[in-house]
């Protein structure tokens, strides 16, 4: 055995590209973003200092408040929906299914397609005068009513629904990878002991797959915080501003509305919120447990 130090050295060396990226691309940008949020910049950065002016404006904005509320609704619905549906699909696919490849591809394909177009298709399907409601009326069920996308108080749920459609397949793939990574012997042992399948999943498999669940949750959470395309394609933030989301706020102000100071203030708030909401959980997941002795 080589001395421990030397080996650690090659681990450090292997991480050099990562360090460069972390320091310049990530830390640098995060600091830059926070700095700009305290200025009066328009479309180009200006390095003056106006204190918390942008933040005050941000929290006076009705649109920002609605965006944050929508994010919470969308986030809960999307994460829970994707996890439940994705897990069910993964487990069912893991039962020596005929045509597994075809099912897997069908569940995953929404993820491959540009949401700018699939979002439009969902908007058609859910539009009362074009889609399901219209088809039902044509088939004689005239009292059928399904106009949630057109109602300011419910449209966000339809956005969440389309979001689940798009991303549940990815969760399925991640959890399937987890299932396939589990040692065959576990199943043999469980079978020998006569434990029912569902109990094996709940008591043994799910805890063993906690890493994959964490991966899925973090990926979904990133998607929630950044949710943008889906809203633009399906509702454009409407009716009115009822389906606006924070990332759309940032992007609108960054480019269209030419106020990068307000945009970076909103991005900084998102960043801090993530730190506060997810930080403790991530910390517990990754940093507190001394799980491994190297």
């Amino acid at each position: 055995m080589k001395p421990l130090r030397l080996r650690r050295l090659s681990a450090q060396a292997a991480l050099i590209p990562t360090w460069v990226i972390v320091i310049f691309a990530y830390l640098g940008t995060i600091l830059w973003t926070i700095r700009i949020s305290f200025t009066s910049s328009g479309i180009l950065p200006k390095y003056d200092f106006v204190g918390f002016e942008q933040y005050e404006r941000l929290f006076r904005s009705a649109r920002w408040i609605i965006s944050v509320q929508n994010l919470a609704i969308f986030g809960v619905m999307f994460i829970v929906g994707c996890l439940v549906l994705g897990f069910l699909m993964a487990v069912f696919l893991d039962q020596r299914i005929k045509g597994e490849g075809i099912f897997r591809t069908i569940f995953l394909y929404p993820y491959a397609m540009s949401f700018i177009v699939t979002g439009l298709v969902w908007a058609w399907i859910l539009n009362p005068t074009l889609g399901i409601q219209h088809a039902m009326h044509n088939w004689g069920w005239t009292s059928f009513s399904f106009d949630w996308l057109a109602r300011g108080d419910r449209a966000i749920y339809m956005v969440g629904f389309a979001g689940i459609w798009q991303s549940a397949g990815l969760v399925m793939a991640i959890l399937l990878a987890g299932l396939r990574g589990i040692d065959e012997d576990i199943w043999k042992a469980a079978r020998v002991d006569g434990i029912p399948t569902w109990r094996v999943y709940i008591s043994i498999v799910i805890p063993m797959m906690s890493g994959m669940f964490v991966t899925a949750i973090v990926l979904l959470a990133i998607a929630v915080v950044k949710v943008y395309d889906i809203v633009v394609a399906m509702t454009g933030g409407g009716p009115g501003i009822s389906t606006e989301v924070p990332a759309k706020f940032v992007i609108d102000y960054l480019f269209n509305r030419q106020n990068i100071a307000l945009a970076t203030a909103a991005a900084s708030v998102m960043f801090v919120a993530v730190l506060v909401v997810l930080g403790p959980w991530l910390y517990r997941q990754y940093f507190r447990k001394e799980r491994r002795a190297a």
Binding site: G42, A62, R63, G152, G238, P239, G240, I241, S242, D252, Y253, N256, R257, Q258, N259, L262
Partner: peptide, 19 residues
């Protein structure tokens, strides 16, 4: 008017029109 103010007007107008 600036794109910034245009944007604020847009948010208000569409919220009013749809509610």
């Amino acid at each position: 008017i600036t794109p910034d103010m245009s944007g604020s007007i847009q948010d208000l107008v569409s919220a009013y029109f749809t509610d």
